[in-house]
Design a protein around this nucleic acid. Structure first.
Lengths: 203, 203
DNA sequence: GGGGTTACTGACAAAAATGTCAATAACGGA
DNA sequence: TCCGTTATTGACATTTTTGTCAGTAACCCC
């Protein structure tokens, strides 16, 4: 019945870091599959294949699990975004690649759901890192392509905001009106790319 | 302390419809202000100024309250959208007005939060009305302006998806990177309007 | 292999949230 | 004014969820 372990199997003893990671991964799965209200102590523990008390041993409370999950998902997202290496030439391809990564992160990797979760639970104060990341990307990556910093920030603000909408609601709305689920992303990316030219060149 | 009634005041006896509306309004306030996890029986009842048992008398369960709230918010949103009357001339102004209404509904009237809530709780099956509304708008309102139905539906899909992103996350992200909270909406509307021309004319 | 550290666990306790019920009291109609 | 209906309610019961604790057992080091 369980994917992992049935009873009477010998105890698994992990390092604290491994154990925490295991539990957070289970929680992340639950969050993406069933939403935040499924992040209950018993559910998370069951999914992780450990006892309730084990979760509390490592985190102290179920609230702390949720907060740690937020932090980890934010860190993962930031790392994912920053990992995109962009050569300083081919300005159009450059932005296209960045946008693809961005939209992919938000649509298939749960970042849109993370954003919605943070917003609905009023936990956006955890996002202070975002400011630094945005500035870094605006300066280092887009600055190399000759885009002024404030314009670059506008482009990022626009792109991320739209990526949230597309990642969170695009597939559902597309299906609802009888279009393929990726239609909203296609339309959005098309429009964004068509307008980067206009935005970048001052305006 | 309470905005409405302190104890020992005479009982308020409402019609069932009034009572249900009162309770749902309280729940809606809580949803917008504090998120879905605050929709607890005791909290909703307290906010509505009634006893827990009263809520259960009218709805049967706290789950039913949440579902009724979803339905009511969806109905309100649909009515709000459909109330926009568009004369058949001035095609550009037309779409601008519609977009303004749409983005306003999603940003300031809680529709974006509703969408996020539905998505996170996997309750999007409640949105089947949306299909009809979209088709109606695409045909009656945009059809009058000479836009083919499938293109009109693409435009609506795009607009609504982006409105969710902007309404849900635009203000927060804007503030986070030191821009005015309405910046994301400005940029998005600008881009959308600049592209309606291109989209409408077949492509 | 003996012993100490500590991750792990089941059983239990506490707290929180939901739901039941009988009694009360507004309101409308006879 | 009296009465029946039923919206309303406090007190209580049930269920769900979280948290505590003392004992168990892997792993490492000597």
């Amino acid at each position: 019945m369980s994917i992992t372990e049935n009873k009477n199997s010998p105890r698994i003893r992990r390092t604290p870091e491994e154990s925490r990671a295991n539990i957070l991964s289970a929680a992340e799965d639950l969050l993406v599959e069933q939403g935040p209200q499924s992040l209950r102590l018993a559910d998370v523990a069951k999914r992780a294949g450990v006892a309730n008390a084990t979760v509390l041993h490592h985190f102290g409370s179920i609230d702390a699990v949720q907060q740690a999950l937020m932090e980890r998902m934010i860190a993962d997202l930031v790392e994912n975004i920053l990992s995109v290496e962009i050569p300083a030439d081919a300005p159009l391809e450059v932005r296209t690649a960045g946008l693809k990564t961005l939209f992919d992160a938000f649509e298939t990797r749960g970042a849109a759901r993370l954003a919605a979760w943070l917003e609905l639970t009023d936990e956006t104060s955890r996002l202070t890192v975002v400011r630094e990341v945005v500035q870094e990307v605006a300066q280092k990556k887009m600055g190399n392509a000759g885009v002024p910093a404030d314009v670059a920030e506008d482009i990022i603000l626009l792109s991320v905001t739209l990526a949230v909408g597309v990642g969170l609601f695009g597939p559902t709305l597309g299906r609802l009106i009888g279009k393929p689920p990726e239609r909203a992303r296609e339309l959005t990316l098309q429009m964004l790319m068509a307008n980067l030219e206009r935005l970048s060149s001052d305006r």
